[in-house]
Computed example of a mutant assay.
Amino acid sequence: MLTIFSAFIISLVVGFFVLHHQETHQSFTGDNDLTGVQKFHTTVVPRIGGILVLMGIIAGILIRYFSPDVGAFNVGKLLIVSAMPAFLGGLAEDLTKKVGVKMRLFLTALSAGVAGFLLDAWLTDIQVVGVDFLLTIPIIYVAFTCFAVAGVANSFNLIDGFNGLASVVSLMILLAIAYVAFQVRDYGILLSSFAAIGAIAGFVFWNYPKGAIFLGDGGAYLIGFWIAELCILLVTRNSAVSKWFPMLICIYPIFETIFTIYRRLVKRLHPGMPDANHLHQMIFRRIVSDPSNNDADQLAKENSITSAYLWFLACLSVIPAILFWQYKWILQLSTALFCTAYIWLYWAIVRFKIPAWLSR
């Protein structure tokens, strides 16, 4: 608990200073674009929440410097080092608005490569016939690992559209990882999970429900990278954990990304082109929002309510993953059921056939 508390307090304090001096730095740290297709805020908001998360994680890891479990401390320390390219690439975009998605993906893949080298965190088996044979070849498993980590990190950035959405979903996932890490007595992963949980909780204090600060690309890529690497380490260091456990706990952001690419290709749009048709945006417009009300406080309230719908959706994957983390077939079936439910929900909203129990 010391790790969580330390990470939380430092994240909270850094957030206080960032917001207290907002007028000094908002010209280059604020989200000044209030008209973009993915924008729902009405005032300039700092988008450097990733700094809070990073500082909290560092504090949570460093507090264990004198711990007798040196191995656990080293895992966290090396993950921080590995995360730097992913975080700095995202933060540079937050500050300059000039770092494209391809460069951010490349830097996150670089972070994955560094983590693979320092921690031997390579995906050499995903319990898929045929693919596992290919993953015995070094150049393939290195490329696949870097691609997978970059993809997962980007998926968390993709769902970062409403106050508390990506951050609370991340907390759910990290709690699931921490639970399984405790079950298999992997204290290195447990420590790193706790550090991230405390740091993100400190950020959520300022972000939810009114959105005083945003996670930004730096925060989203950092959290996505951290979760992806903990998942890889968990299954590579502990054979009892099914390789489908990480897939199921992360299936909401992953499938949101896959479905988004599909939607854009069908509409003959560039897969990387932003739009306002993500599931969370559809829920906001067609279930939660009152089009006749433009009051800023009401918009903030509707923003926070929207996130709660997606938290419930994420629970549909995280809960069975926690219950059946050892059982491949149940995890695979749960993954398929989640994807089916996601598609059904999306098309129900698109066709205005919203179930009564979802309506406000």
Rank of each mutant, 00 (worst) to 15 (best):
D94I: 01
L222D: 06
Y252S: 06
S6T: 14
F255S: 12
I305M: 13
F133N: 13
W244P: 02
F312H: 01
V288P: 07
I249E: 03
F66E: 08
E229H: 00
P274C: 11
V266Y: 01
I287R: 10
D275V: 07
A199C: 00
I223T: 13
F324K: 08
Q26G: 01
V129D: 14
V266E: 00
D295M: 04
L123I: 15
L279Y: 05
N207C: 11
A276K: 10
A166W: 02
S155A: 15
M282S: 05
F203A: 04
S27Q: 15
I261N: 06
L337R: 09
A178V: 10
A296G: 03
A181L: 12
H41Y: 10
I177T: 15
G216K: 00
D160N: 13
R104I: 06
T35W: 08
F205I: 13
I319N: 07
K98N: 13
L331Q: 12
Y221S: 09
C146T: 04
F144Y: 13
F324S: 10
S239F: 11
G188Y: 07
A240I: 09
I349V: 10
F117V: 10
V204E: 07
L2E: 06
I159G: 05
T136P: 02
G161M: 05
I61L: 09
H21I: 05
G216I: 02
P209N: 12
L158Y: 07
E302Y: 03
F255E: 09
I200G: 10
E256M: 11
G90M: 09
R264D: 10
W347K: 10
L2K: 10
L234K: 13
R263S: 11
G224L: 05
L54E: 01
D275A: 06
P291I: 05
T260S: 15
C339V: 10
F203H: 01
A143Y: 06
I261W: 09
H280S: 05
L105V: 07
G36Y: 03
W357F: 15
G100N: 15
T24Q: 14
L233G: 09
G161T: 04
G130D: 08
D31H: 02
S304W: 03
M172P: 00
V149T: 10
L230Q: 07
H21C: 01
A356W: 01
K98V: 08
A150L: 02
D290T: 14
S359Q: 14
M55D: 00
W357P: 00
F194E: 14
A240M: 06
D290C: 10
I177E: 13
W344T: 05
Y179N: 12
P253N: 03
T335H: 13
L52E: 14
A153Y: 04
A72E: 03
L119A: 12
C250Y: 00
D125P: 01
K328M: 08
Q298C: 00
K98R: 15
F312K: 08
T96C: 11
L234S: 11
A109Q: 08
Q183T: 14
I254Q: 02
V235H: 02
Q22L: 02
A7G: 15
A150C: 09
